[in-house]
Design a protein around this nucleic acid. Structure first.
Length: 354
DNA sequence: CAATCGCTTCACT
DNA sequence: CTAACGAGTGAAGCGATTG
């Protein structure tokens, strides 16, 4: 007791959007359920955002086209994701967690890391159980909690304990736990990175641990160094209280593909409203405005423009976005447009670094 | 030649 | 039948540009 052992507790809500729906509509429980990105009328143009575990039994998972989910399970229950509602539940959960007073990093709508100041694993396990039970009692929602000596280790072990689990990974067990796991279990390693590393015959985290760090850096840049350290049991990640936002954007698929500015005007106005209200809510100003067009053939184009002063003006976003999009709309039909602001500064004055 | 710009790529839910 | 299915949010990286 007493010496400093850094312990991170990582909370990840299980199938969060769908679980929120089960919590407010208990009659949905026990049956396959998905929430998706598009309204009921056009649901087949969208993708699955969350799938409960009954749905996953049929091979359904997030990011899968909704049309495919229906092919796998024709009588599946579908709900159009109600993100403001999930956001409000999330805020309450995060508030409850921050009430513990530990350093805490909110990673997404359904994930958070807490840096504990307990001195041993039994205390951390006890705390994890208490938090899990509170989330169940207060919100009727399941979650999984991972505990380890670093944020990344805690996240990986959390993933391994899903759903509805708790798992503590002690320092002495880390290497052994990691070595047979696929490298894609490391946050930040997706398909492309995995493919690059596969050409070096690296598929498991154990392969990473034995690799030549220089070859790793050659293959995936500075990320290679972090990967090597992780694989060898060193997690340098830190829990950051105020991870500042780099950009704020909204994008949405049009009801009908567009070929003229006229076709996108109202969507552009809506997206701009949403971006501006988020900017104001977070008390930010921006210096760069960007747009994105996705064509019917699913190729994307983006354009952006930077100014030399900060602003939070809706009119500026609207007029700039309209000009930029004007250059992207032509023969090729556009199915989706987006608006984004970046180069952000906090209104309180100081620059938004880190 | 360092900082910024405009854009592409990638990850993740 | 290995193409086609295909939303939304955001960070990182990179070559080009600029002061």
């Amino acid at each position: 007791m007493g010496f400093a052992l850094r312990l991170i507790l990582y909370v990840d809500m299980d199938y969060f959007f769908a679980a929120c729906e089960e919590a407010r509509h208990p009659e949905l429980r026990g049956k396959p359920l998905i929430t998706g990105t598009s309204p009921e009328e056009t649901k087949f143009r969208g993708v699955v955002e969350a799938a409960n575990y009954e749905a996953r039994k049929f091979g359904i998972h997030s990011a899968m086209p909704t049309s495919m989910a229906y092919r796998l399970k024709p009588d599946i229950k579908y709900i159009y994701s109600d993100e403001p509602y999930y956001e409000s539940i999330s805020a309450k959960i995060m508030e409850m967690l921050s009430g513990y007073g530990f350093r805490m990093e909110v990673d997404s709508i359904d994930e958070a890391a807490m840096e504990l100041d307990v001195a041993d694993y039994p205390d951390a396990l006890k705390l994890a159980k208490e938090i899990k039970q509170k989330i169940k009692q207060n919100f009727d929602l399941p979650c999984t909690i991972g505990v380890s000596t670093g944020k990344i280790f805690a996240k990986i072990v959390c993933d391994s304990a899903k759903p509805n689990g708790i798992r503590v990974l002690e320092e002495k067990d880390i290497q052994d736990f990691l070595k047979d796991k696929d490298i894609e279990k490391i946050p930040g390693v997706g398909r492309k990175t995995a493919e690059k590393l596969a050409t070096l015959k690296i598929k498991k985290i154990g392969d990473l641990a034995k690799a030549d760090p220089m070859m790793l850096i050659d293959s995936v840049g500075s990320f290679g160094r972090e990967l090597f350290l992780i694989a060898n049991g060193t997690d340098e990640s830190t829990v950051e209280e105020n991870v500042s936002v780099v950009s704020i954007g909204r994008e949405r698929t049009l009801e009908n593909n567009a070929t003229k500015m006229n076709d996108i005007d109202s969507m552009l106005n809506n997206l701009t409203d949403e971006v501006i209200s988020e900017v104001k809510k977070q008390k930010l100003m921006f210096k760069t405005i960007g747009v994105k067009a996705r064509y019917a053939d699913f190729t994307d184009r983006i354009k952006s423009k930077s100014f030399n002063t900060y602003s939070d003006s809706k009119d500026l976003v609207l007029s700039t976005a309209r000009t930029l999009l004007g250059g992207l709309i032509g023969e090729k039909p556009v199915r989706k447009i987006g608006v984004r602001v970046s180069s952000l500064i906090s209104v309180k004055g100081q620059r938004n670094l880190f």
